Amino acid sequence: MLNGADLVYTYDGSFEGLLCCVFESYEKKEIPEDILPPDGQPGLFDSCKFIETDHEKAQRVYDSIPIKISLEAQELVKLGFLTIVPQRELSIFRFLRLGYKVGGKIMSMLMDDNVNSLQKAVHHLTTEAHKYKGFIRFSIYNEALVAVIEPKNFVLPVLAAHFANRFRNEVFMIYDKTHKSALIHQAGRVEIVEIDDLELPELEEKEAEFRRLWQRYYKTIGIESRYNPRCRMTFMPKHFWNQLTEFYSEQELTVRKRLKNS
């Protein structure tokens, strides 16, 4: 088995592509030092090997996880790919190799760094997604509901089913400014597409009035004597404030905005 310290896999950045890296490792009996997405930077002396994405190979690896490890491990790997855990690909790769050796008990092996970091990262992802279920604020543009979020993790796949069920008869879009992607629901279909930047049409006066009314409601129900900034930040972290109507300035309530990634 090759364990060259300079062997690095590169792949197309997709979940299927990562599973193909796992397949390649077993097929060629080699263990890469790292697995890099398209924007990854290999070391000066790394020997890079690009792994082509093959849907059949990826499916074979994916189907093997619940058989050789567990359904929980399969879900952990799928969600882990959406997280911001450092060296995400390598962490998932090592988790699977260990899981294929020890089976389902890997889920309780929290002393292992890869298992522990992956489970923590998935917990962070699901917690963030849960908060967005309550913190997403839609606005109406040309009879479509549009929301903008700036998550740390790639939460759109986790949010898709929730909002598709909640607004099943609506046309809506949730734009992820961080990952330059959008969740689009139309005619009962949901898809996630890449969007580099988003320019919204002129805000209608009716929508501007809805924003003012929501701010007024938010301020009215507040109890001044029970004002507790620390408690509020616990349940509504500042990370979410930028896209919450409650905290819009007067200009943001009315002015057309161009949403661009820096």
Rank of each mutant, 00 (worst) to 15 (best):
L2I: 15
N3K: 15
G4Y: 08
V8Y: 06
V8N: 01
T10Q: 11
T10Y: 04
G13C: 04
G13V: 09
F15T: 08
E16T: 06
G17L: 02
G17A: 02
C20T: 11
V22D: 04
F23Q: 10
E27W: 11
K28D: 02
K28I: 10
P32E: 05
D34K: 10
I35S: 03
L36Y: 01
P38W: 07
D39P: 01
G40F: 02
L44D: 08
S47N: 15
I51P: 07
E56M: 11
R60D: 14
R60G: 02
I65V: 07
I65F: 00
I67Y: 14
I69P: 07
S70F: 00
L71Y: 10
L71K: 15
E72P: 05
A73F: 15
L82I: 11
T83W: 04
V85C: 10
V85K: 10
V85D: 05
P86R: 01
Q87C: 05
L90K: 06
S91L: 15
Y100W: 14
Y100S: 01
K101D: 13
G103S: 09
G103L: 09
K105S: 11
K105V: 12
I106D: 00
M111I: 04
D112H: 10
D113K: 12
L118F: 04
A121H: 08
V122W: 05
L125P: 09
T126N: 09
T127P: 00
E128H: 02
E128F: 06
A129C: 07
I136P: 02
N142F: 01
E143K: 15
L145N: 13
L145G: 03
V146H: 03
A147D: 04
V148P: 06
V148L: 11
I149D: 00
P157A: 06
L159M: 01
L159V: 08
A160K: 02
H162D: 01
H162I: 08
H162M: 03
H162T: 07
F163Q: 06
F163C: 08
N165T: 13
F167V: 07
N169P: 04
V171A: 15
F172N: 03
M173I: 11
I174R: 07
Y175K: 01
D176R: 02
K177F: 03
T178H: 03
T178P: 04
H179C: 06
A182L: 02
A182S: 10
L183I: 06
L183R: 13
Q186G: 01
V190R: 08
E191H: 14
E194C: 11
E194K: 12
L198G: 08
L198V: 09
E199A: 04
E199W: 00
L200Y: 07
E202H: 14
E204W: 03
E204N: 15
E205T: 14
K206L: 12
A208R: 13
E209A: 15
F210M: 12
F210S: 10
L213G: 00
L213D: 12
Q215L: 03
Q215S: 01
R216W: 07
K219E: 15
I221L: 05
E224C: 06
R226S: 07
Y227A: 11
Y227R: 10
P229M: 01
P229N: 04
C231N: 13
C231Q: 10
R232G: 02
F235A: 08
H239Q: 15
W241S: 03
L244Q: 14
F247R: 05
Q251D: 13
T254W: 00
R256M: 14
K257D: 13
L259K: 04
N261Y: 08
